[in-house]
Design a protein around this nucleic acid. Structure first.
Length: 556
RNA sequence: GGCCUCGUGGUGUAAUGGUAGCACUAAGGUUUCUGGUACCUUUAGUCGGGGUUCGAAUCCCUGCGGGGCUACCA
């Protein structure tokens, strides 16, 4: 589906470098911090970096940016690897951790100290903030800025040895406290952290900052193009400063592009974590979560997600994609392959008066209307069946092609029935519909060739598979979940109806499914079997509805 | 008040000084044992103002608008 690759500014840049001989290979990387699950924005970043490496016959590395032990866990490492594999981004042998480079990074910090380009600062975080100045005012030098190389070396060694409490001292680069780019106002290189690291354990008492780690890690791995999001644009001068002032083995180039935003979707790891810890969702892989694992559980295919990223493309400006594109990509992918099944989600009983009591007649329906090679399955018709409540109206309007008093419809794959009567309870709710079927119409058509406008799906009340169906709507009520009034947070925009659990009935064939299986429930949408399913209860998630031009017309 | 960066139909994205194209969405139609799919049609765009040029979405100036930057997070 992703046949042609449109040009973009990153590929153009690479083409130029390759053409001019500045480089002759392409090596990219995806550098997640293992502090949460991957979301759809990461899926784009992965596709861009992995796709470029593949197209230029280069190399793609997976590198965990694990420089902050306070937030990182192995659970996340495992989940991230699984998601990358599922998305089809193969890193082969090239799995790395920034923590693999801690020794090298430390040596380079010492190198900078010896060059007079780094110093230990005793300022408190609050003092540092004050000294840094503001967006419009220059900062001023720390009183510790001119420590001797020997003193710096000695204290830095003591920091490493764990002689100080957390937060007492930092190592800073000596650049320019008046620089208009605040990132160059003597950024922090190392801070004291007495946390246990998920890989290096208690070996280190000091940890390098992102800025001091990223570019050098890229250089160590021979990354040629370090692709990242726009927010790092103002870090690029610092990224380059380290590459210029350190004896690094290669000179990677950082290129930024805009992150992927989608209506009704939040992609802040911090906020996603909050949704999980506060119990607003079933977990990181809740079908409503914008995580890769959430989409997977909802029933999205990797190719649908990749196609979405491909169509969203990349740009240098912030943009918000419409949710409908996401749904389109899924339907597009599933339409040709998903087996068709019938399930009634909101049942009402129909009694077929002239159908023999206690008997079952089996009819055959194709698994896919456009592809006979996918075979057929049998569906059971009995005297009593369920149809959707919304497929019957007591007083139907003109263009209503479904069931109503005296009206005739086709039961999918089976026969025609005509409504003869209906029963109401004391409250006025319709509880039962009565109908007769035309024996001549078996197989779905009659000798007289009369046209039937409406075909509805149905399920036997006795020969069926009970289902729990979870119908999902967007997690938030607003296209921009962060659009809140004073004093509110994104939590206030949570959609109270984002999950509706239904007791439904599916055709008998659905008794054999396993988690991950996907089907189209005819006229209702695409559904996937949830991992919560067990021998007693089959659970389906609605991945997306079908396009519904009738429903849309009704809404007007 | 500073620095960086970006403005193309409703949305997303192409056009690299030479016919503003594609997709999604929306509206309408044809086909149909899914009000689905498929197919067809329509609406709709270069942020404003100057300039350079035979010719500007593209280059220059200026205005306006959006985003980012003031963590011992990444």
């Amino acid at each position: 589906m992703t046949e042609e690759t449109p040009s973009n500014f990153i590929r153009d840049f690479i083409d130029e470098e390759l053409a001019s001989g500045v480089r002759d290979t392409v090596v990219t990387r995806f550098p997640p911090e293992p502090n949460g699950y991957l979301h759809i924005g990461h899926a784009l970043a992965i596709q861009v970096s992995h796709g470029i490496a593949t197209d230029y016959k280069g190399q793609f590395n997976l590198r965990f940016d694990d420089t902050n032990p306070a937030k990182e866990e192995d659970e996340y490492v495992q989940a991230i690897k699984k998601d990358l594999q599922w998305l089809g981004a193969d890193w082969g042998e090239n799995l790395f951790f920034a923590s693999d480079y801690f020794d090298q990074l430390y040596d380079w910090a010492v190198f900078l100290i010896k060059e007079g380009l780094a110093y230990v600062d005793d300022l408190t975080p609050e003092e540092m903030r004050t000294y840094r100045g503001s967006l419009t005012e220059a900062g001023k030098d720390s009183p510790f800025r001119d420590r001797s190389v020997e003193e710096n070396l000695e204290i830095f060694q003591q920091m490493r040895d764990g002689k100080f409490d957390e937060g007492k001292r930092v190592l800073r680069a000596k650049i320019d406290m008046a620089h208009p780019n605040l990132n160059l106002r003597d950024p922090v290189l190392y801070r004291i952290l007495h946390a246990r690291h998920h890989r290096t354990g208690d070996k280190w008492k000091i940890y390098p900052s992102y800025d001091f780690t990223h570019g050098q890690s890229d250089a160590i791995e021979g990354i040629t193009h370090s692709l990242c999001s726009l927010e790092f644009e103002s870090h690029r001068p610092l990224y380059n400063w380290f590459l210029e002032n350190l004896p690094v083995p290669s000179k990677p180039r950082q290129i930024e592009f805009a992150r992927l935003n989608v209506e009704y979707i939040l992609t802040s790891k911090r906020k996603l974590l909050q949704l999980v810890t506060e119990g607003h969702v079933r977990g990181w892989d809740d079908p409503r979560m914008p995580t890769v694992s959430g989409f997977r559980r909802l029933g999205y295919t990797a190719s649908a997600l990749n196609e979405f990223c491909h169509r969203a493309g990349i740009a240098k400006r912030e943009r918000v994609n419409e949710y409908s594109l996401l749904e389109y990509c899924l339907r597009q992918d599933l339409e040709g392959s998903a087996y068709r099944r019938m399930a009634v989600l909101n049942p009402i009983k129909v009694v077929i008066e002239n159908f023999p009591e206690g008997e079952t007649e089996w009819f055959e329906g194709p698994n896919h209307p456009g592809n006979p090679e996918l075979g057929t399955r049998k569906v059971a018709l009995t005297k009593e069946i369920f149809i959707e409540r919304e497929d019957f109206m007591e007083e139907p309007p003109k263009k209503f092609f479904r069931l109503g008093p005296g009206r005739e419809v086709r039961l999918r794959y089976t026969c025609y029935i005509t409504c003869t009567d209906f029963v109401k309870d004391d409250a006025g709710n319709i509880t039962e519909i009565r109908a007769t079927f035309d024996p001549e119409s078996r197989g779905g058509s009659t000798p007289d060739g009369r046209k039937i406008k409406g075909t509805i799906h149905w399920v036997s009340t006795t020969k069926n598979t009970p289902l729990e169906v979870r119908v999902y709507e967007p997690l938030f009520t607003k296209p921009n979940p962060e659009d809140v009034q004073e004093g509110q947070t994104f939590i206030d925009n949570l959609n109270p109806n984002s999950e509706t659990v239904l007791t439904a009935y599916g055709e008998t064939e659905l008794s054999k499914v396993k988690p991950g299986d996907r089907f189209q429930f005819e006229r209702k949408g695409y559904f996937a079997v949830d991992p919560d399913s067990n021998a007693k209860q089959i659970v389906f998630n609605r991945s997306t509805g079908l396009r519904d031009s009738w429903g849309k017309k009704q809404a007007k």
